[in-house]
Design a protein around this nucleic acid. Structure first.
Lengths: 226, 226
DNA sequence: ATAAAAATTTAGACTAGCCTAAATTTTTAG
DNA sequence: CTAAAAATTTAGGCTAGTCTAAATTTTTAT
């Protein structure tokens, strides 16, 4: 049985490992957990003792199979609760992160199974992130970042990489919602900002900073699940 | 801001204060929190420092107004989540206590308000316990224990005092459900057990131990809210 | 009323998770 | 290739919440 804190470390190791590839650094974890590097080292020793991570001093860290299984369970719970908060309780997608951060630590398997059924076994959370399967598989979506799309291409907004309230409110403000179609009309070479048309409607300016956090898919492969 | 643990102490002081009258003893709290008396003393000093309880050494303990307000918030959250678990997720009334025990510590007021609305602002939880109002009032029901009902009386089962799985399963087994009408046919003087008829249906035997944990109301005052 | 029993508090210690400061290892730049 | 910089770990310490054992206060029973 792991603690609240251990679960958070596992979850963060998982997401850092995916973002950058392979090993995760002590400093990156310290930043993500809002603690100091020394505290992270302590926890890594503990997680290594419990066989949840592969850890060699000064060499960075990687989840074991068991560690990954647990991390995916936490992520599954987090994302299911986010769906609940948005679809059933009517929260905005920019309001649910912190609450889900607490709900995710309730470990009853029965609860998670019933919640999943109640929500209709959703495949994606309100930010477009795939929900790990009960068996512990993370579906691989082949999305690209909007910042990597070529001029003239026609894509669909599938997910966002940043979950902060400010970022999501900014998207709302620009009429960018999950599932909307985006046509890249102009790419500015000096700052990599883009000018896009949303659906058949308005044309908006998107900075590179924002475009890097928008995941898109080619138009034809869009499914009904969003 | 209080911790998880502090909230549990406040909640337990509240319920012990109601069960017995007035002051709550260190030992009673130790038993209820599954800790030792020495640990309770430590925590009482802390809660007293925070002005959440009135505490004089060796004299027992009583909630301050602020302490009671916080306790009622925790209890409100607990009971609302129990309603959610039973009505929305389909749990049995005997399965929800432990899960609600975790959910009750999520303090977002927005979450509680939305959950309340979503559930239709229920007045009672699945065990018949009244749900404190958002303003922090605990509705007073004038229920009696079945063990105090006179022979021949016709009453309605409104709530249970014991929430353990075993106890609730036992009631299910005897066809005793909230809202059912009960007619006391026979009271055995030697062990205070009773023979009752449930509705117009079957007649069951109820031990004094069980009858003490069943709260009933006179037939005519039964409302539709159960 | 007072001695024994029960309840409660104090003293001292432990673990989890965090900290700062210092030491060590790895990486990087010249 | 080596010295400086950056990253990481170690050492020692803190708080919350728990414990056991011993001391103290209150209650109870004669």
């Amino acid at each position: 049985m792991q603690s609240f804190t251990e679960e958070n470390y596992l979850k963060m190791i998982y997401s850092l490992a995916n973002r950058r590839q392979g090993e995760v650094s002590t400093n990156a974890l310290a930043e993500m957990t809002s603690t100091k590097a020394a505290s992270v080292t302590d926890m890594l020793r503990k997680l290594a003792d419990k066989q949840l991570i592969h850890y060699k001093k000064y060499q960075g860290v990687r989840l074991t199979e068991e560690g990954e299984r647990l991390a995916l369970q936490v992520i599954r719970r987090h994302r299911l609760w986010e769906v609940f908060l948005v679809q059933k309780l009517g929260f905005g997608w920019d309001e649910v992160h912190d609450i889900a951060e607490e709900l995710e630590h309730i470990r009853s398997e029965d609860l998670v199974a019933r919640l999943d059924t109640y929500l209709g076994c959703p495949q994606f959370d309100p930010h477009g992130d795939p929900i790990p399967t009960p068996a512990g598989q993370m579906p691989e979506m082949g999305y690209r970042k909007l910042s990597e799309v070529a001029m003239g291409e026609d894509v669909c907004l599938m997910a966002v990489l940043e979950h902060s309230t400010e970022f999501l409110k900014h998207l709302d403000h620009s009429n960018l919602t999950l599932g909307c179609s985006i046509t890249v009309n102009e790419i500015n070479t000096f700052d990599k900002s883009v000018l896009v048309q949303i659906g058949t409607g308005r044309t908006v300016f998107i900075s590179h900073e924002v475009a890097k956090n928008l995941l898109v898919d080619s138009r034809q492969s869009v499914v009904a699940s969003h």
